[in-house]
Design a protein around this nucleic acid. Structure first.
Length: 423
RNA sequence: GGAGAGAUGGCAGAGUGGUCGAAUGCGGUGGUCUUGAAAACCAUUGAGCCGAAAGGUUCCGGGGGUUCGAAUCCCUCUCUCUCCGCCA
């Protein structure tokens, strides 16, 4: 949620920010609602002040006295007015609140203009894109792929997009999770095990609701949401809390399965492991002081990049343009790894600064040591990294002329071998 | 799943219809004293919203109700604890 005061005082700046993101949003209606809301608050509060004053007087009157009885009669009318005012205010406030939740975060000045992905800016390229060769194959075209990755049976058991990892494939997937978690810990991100189901409050705080309603799986009996990313439980860890300034910044990481309905996604870009309904990911989280968040975003991006460097995978980093970035962030980098078989770039990490947007929704504050007052902090997160597409890149880039798949050296201790080959 | 108990400020813990945002203790902060520290003593110490400010108002797990008035009474939900059952 953006700062309501900022909106009130700088509606044009907000309008410009929303336009940069190419999102439609009726600000005038929200501003009118806000004005009405504030007028109603004053009205309701002065009525209540009257009631309270009368209440104090009555406390001193003898219970059955004529003055007391007269006062009760008089206050009955005020009581009715207070109830009416509260009801009206409650309705307006709910409407205003819902509208506020539908205003996206505003992009930072440094975010490039642009409508869609074609206007993202490549800010870094690393590693050699492998030269074309006859033996290169998309992972789903390798004839023995079912030995390590069984999509067919996944579809039977759960549905399309729920892969089975088998044998060395399972070891590689788990090896990646362990590699990412260990690297995260070494880099100062405290490891956290997270719940995979969350309640609506949590999903709202991080911005999945109401924006992405329908993209999450939901349980029937309890109305819980299957998390689309560990970002949700990790960020909500400190919901409604005030953190000591001395404890900032806080760095954490956590692995989870991520569940995404991907309603509306079809076509060849979703083949194989490219886009699935359930996948593993290690997520990185930062809680920081506002003035440091842009620097923290750069170091977060550099850390995520360092994982791909260690895995020896060619990648590029994109600074997302206004129109292609998420609803909740003010600046976002995407890391894309090159998959030699499909000859295309696959997004394996998204590193975002949310500014105060999530923290305001989640009421995560820190106590300013100088003023002693609570202030909204800033949150950031980034994938470090998503497993399946890294898995794809390792398979496709590691596939050799002899048909064996050479694993990155960094993973050999995790998988226990250098090559995966047809049995 | 069944039975019972409970949920109050950073923590502990009073308050069971009316000047209660809430006693008291601990903790925190500032001060006095001291060469310094400790102890003792004094003061201070929750959050949100509206307001330029003065000030006002809300919040005693969440929601609803009764009442002129609710931390206090009623309903409901959630969570915690104890016991029983079941179970990875």
């Amino acid at each position: 949620m953006i700062d309501p005061k900022f909106l009130r005082e700088n509606p044009d700046a907000v309008r410009a920010g929303i336009a940069k993101k190419h999102i439609k949003c009726d600000l005038d209606a929200i501003l009118a609602l806000d004005e009405k809301r504030r007028a109603l608050i004053s009205e309701a509060e002065s009525l209540r002040a009257k009631q309270k004053a009368a209440n104090n007087d009555m406390a001193q009157l003898p219970k059955g006295s004529p003055e007391f009885i007269a006062k009760v009669q008089e206050m009955k009318a005020v009581s009715a007015e207070v109830k009416a005012a509260d009801a009206e205010l409650g309705a307006i406030e709910a409407e205003w609140n819902e509208s506020m939740l539908n205003i996206p975060n505003l992009p930072d000045e440094s975010v490039p203009e642009g409508r869609d992905e074609s206007e993202n800016v490549v800010v870094r390229e690393h590693g050699e894109v492998p030269a074309d060769a006859d033996y290169q194959k998309a992972h789903y075209d390798i004839d023995w792929i079912e030995q390590i990755l069984d999509l067919r049976r996944g579809a039977k058991v759960s549905g399309a997009g729920f892969p089975f990892f088998v044998g060395d494939g399972a070891k590689l997937a788990r090896g990646l999770i362990n590699f990412f978690l260990n690297e995260g810990s070494d880099a100062g991100f405290q490891e956290i095990g997270v719940p995979f189901l969350v309640n609506a409050e949590s999903a709202t705080a991080t911005g999945q609701l109401p924006d992405k309603e329908g993209q999450m799986y939901q349980t029937v009996e309890d109305g819980l949401y299957a998390i689309p990313t560990a970002e949700v439980p990790l960020t909500n860890f400190f919901r409604d809390e005030i953190i000591d300034e001395a404890d900032l910044p806080i760095y954490r990481c956590g692995h989870s399965a991520c569940f995404r309905r991907e309603a509306g996604s079809h076509g060849k870009e979703v083949r194989g492991l490219n886009r699935v309904h359930q996948f593993d990911k290690v997520e990185l989280l930062k809680w920081v002081k506002p003035e440091t968040s842009m620097d923290e975003l750069e170091s977060l991006r550099e850390y995520a990049e360092s994982l791909l460097v260690k895995l020896g995978l060619p990648f590029r980093t994109l600074l997302m343009c206004g129109g292609d970035m998420g609803f909740t962030n003010c600046k976002q980098y995407d890391l894309e790894v090159y998959a030699a078989g499909q000859k295309r770039w696959l997004e394996v990490s998204s590193c975002s600064n949310f500014g105060s947007f999530q923290a305001r929704r989640a009421k995560i504050r820190y106590r300013n040591a100088e003023t002693g007052k609570p202030e909204i902090l800033h949150t950031l997160n980034g994938s470090g990294l998503a497993v399946p597409r890294v898995f794809v890149a390792i398979i496709e880039n590691g596939l050799q002329e002899d048909g064996r798949i050479r694993l990155p050296d960094a993973l050999v201790p995790y998988v226990g071998k250098q090559f995966i080959e047809k049995l």
